[in-house]
């Protein structure tokens, strides 16, 4: 893995609440490389969602650093290539980090097509025709082109999540963050969403996935992180994590979920 170029370097990331009484994250250090499919597993309350949400600063970390594309986004300013101090514009960095939520978070007052074209038009300044063409192509890819004019309420959970994924892809992100993307779905719809994610992984998209789908972790992930109590307890390939777990907490966790 050292041969691949690193995209995000997380160093000693901490998120505390109530003067440190609650430690959601207590010092996580990890490098995310381009092309990685990093799957984060762990019991609920282990801080894996907080970790993921910290990556695009939906959570403001208490300390530590997140260097994305060479810029520490937890700081307010950074030195650019000419050595000038520049303000960190988090909106610019978030464009490059697609995020998929457990509860989809589609915009209910807009059609599927408008959901997908809003950010490309308003943030990237694309013209409507080009944005719509791209959106339709993406929808076609997940088999939902005919639902472009529908409202989110008219879709099933699995369809909503597929739209949420391509909505994030429409911004052409460098990394996709998935926060338990199948946890709110009926069991029969989990497969269709995982299939889209597998397709993305095959194309080489960098992905960080928080999930309870151990099958997905084993099959698609190239690195698996095990977190508990805000700490990164074990990291390794899927084979190492699932077949030769070391940490007692991991063994205990696997015995419960497998």
């Amino acid at each position: 893995m050292a041969t691949r170029d690193s995209l995000i370097q997380v160093t000693d990331l901490k998120k505390h609440y109530n003067r440190g009484a609650i430690k959601a994250l207590d010092g996580v250090t990890v490098d995310i490389n381009r092309g990685d499919v990093m799957v984060v597993i762990g019991p609920s309350g282990s801080g894996k969602s907080t970790f993921l949400r910290s990556l695009n600063l939906l959570e403001d970390p208490t300390s530590g650093s997140i260097v994305f594309d060479g810029v520490d986004i937890t700081k307010r300013k950074y030195k650019d290539s000419q050595g000038k101090m520049v303000k960190v514009n988090i909106d610019q960095h978030r464009q490059k980090m697609g995020m998929v939520f457990q509860h989809f978070n589609l915009f209910p007052h807009m059609t599927i097509l408008d959901n997908m074209t809003l950010a490309p038009i308003k943030v990237k300044g694309q013209d409507r025709a080009a944005a719509e063409e791209k959106a339709l192509a993406l929808l076609d890819r997940v088999g939902l082109k005919d639902r472009a004019g529908a409202y989110p309420i008219q879709l099933s959970g699995g369809q909503k999540q597929r739209v949420a994924i391509v909505r994030a892809l429409a911004m052409e992100p460098e990394v996709m963050l998935f926060d338990e993307p199948t946890s709110a779905l009926d069991p029969e719809m989990v497969g269709e969403v995982l299939d889209v994610m597998k397709g993305l992984a095959r194309e080489g998209m960098t992905m960080v996935v928080v999930t309870h789908e151990m099958g997905f972790a084993r099959e698609v992930g190239n690195r698996v992180l095990f977190m508990a109590d805000g700490l990164l307890l074990e990291e390794g390939t899927p084979q190492a994590i699932f077949e030769t777990p070391q940490h007692p907490r991991l063994k205990d966790f696997l015995s419960k979920v497998l």
């Binding site: 695009n56 939906l58 909106d91 610019q92 978030r94 464009q95 980090m97 697609g98 995020m99 939520f101 509860h103 978070n105 589609l106 915009f107 209910p108 007052h109 809003l118 950010a119 308003k122 943030v123 990237k124 949420a164 909505r167 994030a168 911004m171």
Partner: peptide, 29 residues
């Protein structure tokens, strides 16, 4: 729902754009 703002912001929309396009139309309704 707070998820609306999170989705909008993680797509790169500024806070003002989030308010104008996502929050206010739903709130007014």
């Amino acid at each position: 729902d707070g998820g609306q703002s999170e989705a909008a912001r993680s797509l790169g929309l500024r806070q003002s754009q989030n308010f104008q396009y996502i929050i206010l139309p739903q709130a007014l309704k």
